[in-house]
Amino acid sequence: MTWLRKAKEGLKAQQRRRELPDGLWSKCEECGEILYHKELERNLWTCGKCQFHFRISARTYIKILLDEGSFQERFSEVVSTDPLRFRDARRYVDRIKKARESTGLTEAVLCGDGTIEGHPLVAAIMDFDFLGGSLASAAGERIARSILQAIESRHPLVILSSSGGARMFEGILSLMQMAKTNALLARLSDAGVPYISILTHPTTGGVTASYASVGDVILAEPKALIGFAGPRVIKQTIRQELPEGFQRSEFLLQKGMLDRIVHRSEMRKTLAWLLRFFAAAERLPHPPRRRAGESLARFRAASGPIPSPVGHAPTAAPSPVPERGTSPAAAPEPESSPPSPAGAKPSTE
């Protein structure tokens, strides 16, 4: 009878496929809910039922998060080469070519500057669809240049991560990008320029073991898989099943590894609030900053020219007091919290 059931199921699956023509419907990876593309779009590619956040492209994040038309792409000229002449079944250069064609990006990270509600920022947005959002020489160099740009402009840095880790095809050079980016982030911190790290589904491996985990503020989208080792590797190592919800945003928040979980629909508002807060902090009287800027001149040669950022500080001095009352669901919030997801179930508590 098994064969019959299987055959029937196969038939049903086929019918389902027919009922779901490409481009109209999608099935939620998490809860299986069938979702209209129109509705998905309206919800910024999140499931209305279980709040699962679909993976979206770097350019889509730019559209969602930044002020319209404010984004100026930088460092796109920095691209991968093939230093190890790496090949397995395919050549690394062919993989890059294919990734470029399928994503329209030239690397796994899209860098630039822009504004959010008028507040200037330097942004680096990773794209998982480009070779699993993996970190290698060119991506590392782009991020390094973005960090330098943030130090020189004193505009806050936002890195949104979505990555399987360091890229194998560039071997040890990929690993070294973790040192390169974090060594510069140490200077960013010296200079007193804020760094907000946003973790999305999934962020693992070398990226979590470097810049993604050292933000002054670390935010994550709900239910994102975040960890050092992937679940498969851990399962193989410890030879037991992993607990429900292990390595998801909510688990990390509980373990003290995140500041907040922010629904995609609230991310722009939260970032705007944080940028306003840090802008207010920047205006406080400060003892002279350490010589971050002057000592950096020598690194420009190592890391290419730094463009002057286009962002402008908002004219009216904003108050760092958050708009409260937008989020009745977030009762146990501390005094100075940014607004939390209003429409969505607040996943922070």
Binding site: E41, K63, V78, V79, T106, A138, E141
Partner: peptide
Amino acid sequence: MGVYLEEATAAANGAPDASPPDPAPPPA
């Protein structure tokens, strides 16, 4: 550390960069 290229223009290498089609449908 790292080995990468700096292209004169990204397009020179056959990489569309200016306004590529978005792989994921854009949000509303």
